[in-house]
Design a protein around this nucleic acid. Structure first.
Lengths: 206, 206
DNA sequence: GTATCGGCCAAACGTATGTTTAAAACGCTT
DNA sequence: AAGCGTTTTAAACATACGTTTGGCCGATAC
């Protein structure tokens, strides 16, 4: 019986380190050291580094997608779909409500950025297989909200927005550094994400 | 006197491999093997792997930024600044005119995506130092084109757009694969970039 | 009390990496 | 053709990595 929380500690450490440094640059030794756990624990509990990467994504994504799917189903049955509502919902669900949730969400977005730029084919296939359905349901609702946009264009624009969001949240503190240097202004993370929403909505509408 | 083209061959191979697999996942052996060059050649000509990465960026970015800077200076003196013109110019300059240029541009955008997601601090500092001036000049012209947008917001929106562009061009063939699977449609790279321009212009305007 | 089993640990294994070395090959000048 | 600085080469080097091993601990079941 797993009495201890070794698995969780590994996942916590891996989530943070992967997001900070990328998958290849993060060694198992760095992870197990941060988690204060024996090196062999990763291979014992997860089997391999690849499996650990998948597990990190699964722990975050599964609850999120379940919640999103439920909300989307509600919207479907309610009938009325509104663009701002739809993205507001996704945004609130993805970024969380209180500070801690948001902090972790940003970590996860950076993780997503890593997964995107590095050709982790196993991961991409895994994500597509497990969470593709929710994405398609979201796309369908979006199509209902802006029927004037052809679905292929809509698909592209959603990816444009995804890029803006992931890119922005991944490089959050770079943005903050630059804005301090070039504009002498401290800009909060909340302010940035706040600006993001109208940009996304506008971009989808075209 | 360097009679041979060892250096260029290394840069060519490195550019492609780094873009495909990322910096850490690309070994010097893979690079020198693809370039049909001895392993030690990298350290001999560049000094280190880090220096090679910088050299790859410099070879591409320096001519591009010089050209862009010249064009921007023309625009400044001509006085009239138009949003579509400005981004059209940047787009034409960045993506090139004929097929080969465009292919290489896309490779470079993927490279930029890699650089962004991985905390290559040495690279980010280097880019900022060498090419920051052009970026600020571009931003100033942009501000003149849409004076109604506060400059800090403008700065953020430009980064949103940058994210959309880099993300999109980095994952180009992923997009093509998905669009074929989910929409049964072959979508050309030209079509995607074409859709990108109005999205960007709209996003900046807000 | 002892057998059993899942979890944990230190240590080692094999491999791949970036880098260095010292000698060989080359190209140019004289 | 001899000399010399530059480039190329094969080999080795040190290190870091993911993974595997075999024994040890502690709780549960009999």
């Amino acid at each position: 019986m797993s009495q201890s929380d070794t698995v969780e500690r590994i996942l916590d450490a891996a989530e943070i380190l992967f997001a900070q440094k990328g998958f290849a640059e993060t060694s198992l030794r760095a992870i197990t050291s941060k988690a204060r756990v024996n090196l062999a624990a990763v291979n014992y509990h997860f089997g391999s580094k690849e499996a650990l990467i998948q597990a990190v994504f699964e722990r975050y994504l599964t609850p999120f997608c379940l919640a999103l799917d439920a909300k989307l189903q509600e919207l479907e049955q309610a009938g009325g779909v509104d663009l701002e509502k739809l993205f507001g919902l996704a945004s609130r669900l993805a970024l969380g409500s209180h500070g801690d949730e948001t902090r972790r969400a940003i970590i996860f977005f950076r993780l997503a950025g890593q997964a995107y730029s590095q050709p982790q084919d196993h991961l991409r296939a895994y994500l597509r297989e497990h969470y593709g359905a929710v994405f398609r349901r979201f796309l369908a609702l979006l199509h209902a909200a802006v029927p004037e946009v052809p679905s292929l264009e809509l698909f592209l624009r959603v990816h444009f927005c995804l890029g803006a969001v992931i890119f922005t949240l991944s490089g959050m503190e770079s943005l903050q550094t630059i804005s301090k240097k070039d504009f002498n202004t401290d800009i909060t993370a909340a302010r940035i994400t706040q600006q993001l929403l109208p940009f996304v909505v506008g971009g989808i509408r075209g």
